[in-house]
């Protein structure tokens, strides 16, 4: 389990990276490498060149203001997780990051790298979609902004075009009164989720005003649960009947669940529905957590 040979390149600027990626169409960006290097060890990935962006100072920024959190492509997951500034403004990010891999991998893995990897069972793509994050992408034709829902195209498939790399991701800060939870069913601690959910509820007192929910590890991409979101505004508590309605809506939102060796599609649909009800109910019972 050793990588195939490749050329290593550590450019001194983002434009240098873009140039190299444009010149070598099958080159891969190396940031933390926590998904890429294992894939290369299995020779599932055999890029002819790696462009190492981890040391580009321009990509190391974490900017936090009252409206958004912007994270550069060189910033590790653990750095964001431990940032008190991020935790104040956007606790959802730290909440989601706790579920990503293990501390030992978060020390090296980057937030933007998770997006670029686009693993359907990854927490960060789901959070990005659920919060309408925007990715900043730089390529031979300049810089463009891509909303996360458009960026994640399929399993391990993104909107990145030849020569492009993610330079940062921008998470908008949720409205006041929003709480976010990540919930997962995984066979083992720290495993990729078998069924995952990101749920954000914005409440006014006890009443839900706005709901954003995104299931992940259940389909080729994280999917927003639009019917569930439609049912929740106005809700204060979830009795048994309401719970059943919500579960049915969640099951209906998941049109085409994936089946694999870990779980059947039918299981994923049922478990996602249960996870939605359980999570929403638990959030409603926890009035303390009303920070954004």
């Amino acid at each position: 389990m050793k990588p195939a040979s490749f050329d290593y390149y550590r450019p001194s600027s983002v434009s240098g990276a873009v140039q190299a990626l444009a010149d070598s169409p099958f080159a891969k960006v190396l940031a933390g490498g926590q998904s890429l290097i294992p894939a290369m060890n299995f020779r599932l990935a055999t890029p002819p060149m790696l462009v190492d962006i981890a040391r580009l100072e321009d990509l190391h920024g974490v900017e936090v203001d009252e409206h958004e959190v912007t994270i550069g492509a060189g910033v590790t997951q653990r750095h964001v997780e431990m940032s008190t500034r991020v935790a104040e403004v956007m606790p959802a990010l730290a909440e989601a990051l706790r579920w990503v891999g293990h501390i030992q991998t978060r020390n090296r893995g980057t937030v933007c790298g998770s997006l670029a990897h686009a693993d359907p069972s990854g927490e960060l793509p789901a959070l990005a979609i659920n919060t309408d994050a925007d990715l900043t992408v730089e390529g031979p034709n300049g810089i463009r902004e891509v909303p996360a829902p458009d960026f994640i195209r399929g399993p391990f498939w993104t909107d990145l075009r030849p020569g492009e790399l993610i330079t940062s991701i921008r998470f908008p800060v949720a409205p006041r009164g929003t709480t976010t939870r990540v919930a997962e069913i995984a066979h083992r601690s720290g495993d990729f989720a078998t069924v995952g959910l990101v749920a954000s509820l914005t409440r006014d007192g006890r009443t839900i005003r706005r709901a954003r929910l995104c299931g992940f590890a259940v389909a080729g991409t994280p999917i927003r649960l639009r019917s569930v979101e439609g049912l929740l505004p106005g809700v204060e508590q979830l009795d048994e009947t309401a719970g059943r309605t919500l579960a049915d809506a969640a099951a209906a939102d998941l049109e085409d669940p994936v089946g694999d060796i870990h779980a059947t599609g039918q299981y994923r649909r049922e478990a996602l529905a249960a996870l939605v009800v359980r999570t929403v109910r638990s959030m409603l019972e926890d009035p303390q957590r009303e920070a954004s």
Binding site: Y8, G33, I37, N41, D52, T105
Partner: peptide, 19 residues
């Protein structure tokens, strides 16, 4: 294979030496 890289634990099998 966990080692400490600049103070942080990391998997040495999932890092290139050049990194």
């Amino acid at each position: 294979c966990t080692v400490i890289v600049d103070g942080d634990a990391a998997r040495s099998c999932s890092l290139l030496a050049v990194q």
